[in-house]
Computed example of a mutant assay.
Amino acid sequence: MRSSFALIATAGIIALTLSGCASAPAPETGSGDSSNAVTVTGEFGEKPRVEFPSPLEPEETQCTEVIAGEGPLLHEGQMVMLGASLFNGSTGELVQSIGYDDDAAPLAIGGDTLIAFTKGLSCAREGSRVVVVAPSEEAIKPSQDPSGAEGRESLVAVFDVQRAFPARADGAVRLSRDGFPAVVLAPDGRPGITVPNADPFETTEVEVLKEGSGAVVESGDAVVVHYTGVTWDDSKVLDDSTWKAGSPTIVTVTDDEGGQMPQGFSEAVIGQKVGSQVAVVVPPSAGFGDQGNDSVPPGATLFYVIDILGVI
């Protein structure tokens, strides 16, 4: 697995659709004196040279695009692959540099990502190099208490957005068979699932709800997915569902027992095209078996709706 932002984030300083056409996202912030004071040189995708006067302590997060990207602006719910150079904005000290030399790091925008990252990347696109400068109160996770960041150091970040994945499957809609759980999508793409009052299927059963046109997923691939899983008996949403967390994730799927997800989940994804949304009934034999786990009862049949957003 590639490097991630666990170090900086933990430190804390640093089917059927209800909606019509969604409006284009607007940036949550813009450039300012602090972000414009940062000078960045070097080739996109390579570790840059970054200079700025310290301390830089803006009152709110600022973002300046120094290399223009293409396509739509980034927004919450997307996974991106990027290079990042992170600095203490109060002292000028380099804190972390990752994602360069053909080893871009994944970052899910939204959920419990640092507030500054979510705001700052809203002015970026795929191919953008952006400078983000944030006060200590926004260089934390949304779940943290902003008052605990008062008096701490500000954050300066330079991001090279090398790849951006969509927030939801965009394939052509297909109808599912009778007796399959019904899936209705909220405006943001979140699945709502109604399980029929009937005995579950006894084998792994897959339905393609949207058929994409991208690359075909192969066994062993690391795949960007957004998914909701429920138990068949009581429709309880599983704790690891990414829509519950607020952002997609990356999982490795395999046709043997080496995958990160239940075997039935992997079976549903392997062989499908990027951009597809698939639904799968996972019996205990292809799920968590008779032992279950912390959130899945023993012997439970599961039902997943999975958006396949990209292959790393």
Rank of each mutant, 00 (worst) to 15 (best):
F5K: 06
A6R: 06
A6E: 04
I8K: 06
A9G: 14
T10G: 13
I13D: 04
I14F: 09
L16S: 14
L18N: 12
S19C: 14
A24D: 05
P25C: 05
E28N: 11
S31F: 11
G32F: 08
D33K: 14
T39M: 10
V40Q: 02
T41M: 08
E43Y: 06
G45R: 06
K47S: 15
R49E: 15
V50C: 05
F52E: 00
S54K: 12
P55L: 11
P55K: 12
E57A: 10
E59G: 15
T61K: 03
T64L: 11
T64M: 13
V66R: 09
E70W: 09
P72V: 00
L74T: 02
H75D: 03
E76N: 00
L82N: 04
S85M: 08
S85W: 06
N88C: 13
S90T: 15
G92A: 06
G92V: 03
G92M: 02
L94M: 11
Y100D: 04
D102V: 00
D102L: 02
D102K: 06
A105P: 12
P106W: 03
L107M: 08
G110H: 00
G110N: 01
T113W: 00
I115N: 04
A116S: 12
F117N: 13
F117V: 11
T118W: 00
G120M: 01
S122G: 11
S122Q: 08
G127S: 02
G127E: 01
S128T: 14
A134H: 00
S136N: 10
S147T: 07
S147W: 01
G148A: 12
G148Q: 08
E153I: 10
V156A: 09
V161Y: 02
Q162S: 09
A164Q: 01
A169M: 03
A169T: 03
G171W: 02
A172L: 05
L185I: 02
P187R: 09
V195W: 07
N197C: 06
A198R: 07
T204V: 15
E205Y: 10
V206N: 02
E211Y: 10
G214K: 08
A215I: 03
G220D: 09
D221F: 00
V223R: 02
V223F: 02
V225E: 00
T228Y: 05
V230C: 07
T231Y: 01
L238D: 12
D239P: 01
D240M: 15
P248V: 05
T249R: 01
T252V: 01
V253N: 05
P262A: 08
G264V: 04
S266L: 03
S266D: 05
E267M: 14
E267V: 15
A268R: 05
S276I: 09
S276L: 15
Q277Y: 06
V281F: 10
A286K: 11
G289C: 14
N293L: 09
D294F: 13
S295N: 15
G299A: 12
T301W: 11
T301C: 12
L302N: 08
L302V: 13
F303P: 12
V305N: 04
I306S: 03
D307A: 12
L309D: 06
L309F: 09
I312V: 14
